[in-house]
Design a protein around this nucleic acid. Structure first.
Lengths: 205, 205
DNA sequence: GGTGATCCATAACAGCGTTCCGATACGCTG
DNA sequence: CAGCGTATCGGAACGCTGTTATGGATCACC
């Protein structure tokens, strides 16, 4: 009964796309609703009718980030060797972070101040870590890893991966540092630390 | 030849103090120059004459954070046992982060958008990690750790510590998770992964 | 006491997220 | 076909931000 809506799904995708570009070009600070609306040839109202506000727009970016991230994690080829698989997953994690560093910031380092993901988004985020837990649970069941709660190992692996990647992204690593090589060596050493002593054949070099 | 200055060292310290309180109470987003000036009974001009602007004020907080952090690190009692010492340093790191979580955010997770520490501040930051490198260098020299570049081990240790702490601070850890226990176990396992195979007697439980 | 240099609080400016409102543009009715 | 009703959206307004410009206040010196 009224004028035809132009704030439709197509505009929603366009806005998400431009928002990603803005954030990739100049960081999360540069994501302004006014600039975004101007870039997309609409008004700030569009963001409110399509998303609800800036936090909800960021939440959509958060979800999109975890979608891509989850795809990379799920697409990692696993061999059944716990150590090698953990290193492979960690490399996929890093590759995902380097591919979309600003999305990574939104997802893991709260780079947009005041933003908190909603419950659905957080559930999706947790699901992407399932491959990690599967590997660890199996390694413990098979007696390859020591018998500790799987969450402990999972959080440890997640911690070192997340830590190294965020140090790399924030430029906190020393100059001339062999990131890729050291990254894999560190992941291998970390995973090896959970091996059962008698099964231990670690060689972190 | 003019009116006596009230924008002096005392006010500088008062502003730093209030800024810390504001940021601790409601996060980095809530640090506004107007609120800060009002709280301190002065005007926004004070921040500009004493610091130079908001980024420089944040830089001062960054430096203060690393001062406290460095003191905790340097004050950690070391025994000469590489694994135990690395765990102890990691616990000091976590204690420092939990004591001043918002300073930690400024220091390590770029929680104030657009802020980059200046060169002096970054040099100070690097110095606080010296105890870590000393332990590792010695463990490698003594043949306790495998013979890899010390930076590789140091970055790995820093990575897991930083990763676990920021996951904890951002609330990304599962509920009901035994943080303290798992934290130390994960650090121990991680450090054990660098032991030379023949010297290996790891027990991360 | 007047003068002049200095300092600082106030006000102005540009930008932000958000809210509100009026012009718009269509389907339906007479 | 004309006019109405209403859903819709662009633009203006509000209160906030960091930053900059300005003018009044204040003291040392002559």
């Amino acid at each position: 009964m009224a004028r035809p809506r132009t704030h439709d799904e197509a505009l929603r995708l366009k806005l998400l796309d431009r928002a990603g570009e803005l954030i990739a070009a100049d960081g999360p600070k540069a994501l302004s609703l006014r600039k975004l609306a101007a870039d997309a040839g609409t008004s700030t109202t569009a963001v409110y009718s399509l998303f609800g506000g800036k936090p909800d727009l960021v939440n959509a970016l958060y979800t999109e980030g975890f979608r891509r991230f989850g795809a990379r994690m799920a697409g990692t080829v696993l061999t059944g060797d716990a150590i090698g698989d953990l290193v492979a997953l960690g490399s996929a994690y890093r590759a995902s972070a380097l591919a979309d560093p600003n999305l990574y910031g939104i997802m893991f380092t709260r780079s947009v101040p005041g933003f908190e993901p909603n419950e659905d988004a957080e559930k999706l985020a947790r699901k992407t870590l399932e491959p990690l837990e599967r590997i660890i649970r199996r390694a413990i069941a098979d007696g390859v890893f020591v018998d500790v709660p799987p969450e402990t190992v999972a959080v440890g692996c997640w911690g070192i991966v997340h830590g190294l990647v965020s140090l790399e992204l924030t430029g906190n690593l020393p100059e001339g540092f062999d990131v890729t090589g050291s990254y894999e060596a560190a992941l291998r050493a970390n995973a090896s630390g959970w091996l059962r002593p008698q099964a231990n054949g670690n060689d972190p070099s």
